[in-house]
Write a protein that binds this DNA or RNA. Structure first.
Lengths: 132, 132
DNA sequence: TTCAATAGTTCATTTATCCCGAACTAATGA
DNA sequence: TCATTAGTTCGGGATAAATGAACTATTGAA
């Protein structure tokens, strides 16, 4: 597969704006955080649902392209599926602390989000009991 | 001035995605870095030119709104002009290290950019001498 | 070899977002 | 009162993002 060869910017061409833009999408930042967390790689279809939302695969393909072209991940073909690895070591060289801070912030936020969601569920179930 | 009161999200409503999106624009990140650097505040018109580019003031107004609504800055009216201060202390509480890393990355990049620009200028002047 | 299945891409179209000139508002100072 | 200054809002053209449908490439089975 992979009709035309995948484009990867060289690390000098990676920009802060590009990185921030790529990670300013909730789906992409979730995907990226996941790829960074797993030392081993992830193929794209792993992410057909992200935080309980179904992503059409054409959209997903675009998201991966965005991450690649921002210089955040490297993709290579392994037979029929794609092997995605983060380029965070290179980025760490160029922009120290940036990736860690963003991934960490995302973790903080999604922890709080999950908490808020649990509370909301609890509240609504109490309401259900009350209104029975 | 300021017909309708300025909207500022409370810190719990500030999201990573929002911050990254706001700072993924080269003009906005430059403005924000400047506001963070100056302990004292900046009014909007200070930025009618950013890195040798002239910004129309309607555009500038939108940029400031984007920064405000992402929770990055606080704006208040001082007579006819606006007083902009960064909310980085609050953000540091919620997302430790994030702002510092981004501002630092931006500084690194613009330093390199300036270097590249100088080199290009030097090269082109050499070329001029050569072709005289 | 042929065929179905799987994993991603590409294209076309709709939809949302951004940019900026023109017209506006509000405060200040002459 | 009127001009100036600082910033906002609105409208519409340009640009970018989302996604269904059709496609390509590889694999594994019949």
């Amino acid at each position: 597969m992979g009709m035309r060869p995948l484009f990867h910017p060289s690390i000098e061409d990676v920009t802060v704006e590009g990185i921030l833009h790529a990670l300013s999408d909730p789906v992409r930042v979730a995907i990226y955080a996941d790829i960074v967390a797993q030392e081993c790689s992830q193929n794209c279809s792993t992410f057909l649902t992200v935080s309980d939302k179904t992503i059409p695969k054409s959209t997903l393909s675009q998201h991966f392209r965005a991450l690649r072209e921002a210089g955040l991940i490297r993709g290579e073909w392994r037979g029929v599926e794609m092997h995605n690895t983060s380029r965070c070591a290179e980025i760490e060289q160029r922009f120290p602390g940036l990736i860690r801070a963003i991934v960490n912030a995302h973790a903080i936020q999604s922890k709080h989000g999950a908490q808020a969601k649990r509370l909301a569920a609890k509240r609504s179930s109490r309401r259900l009991v009350k209104n029975k």
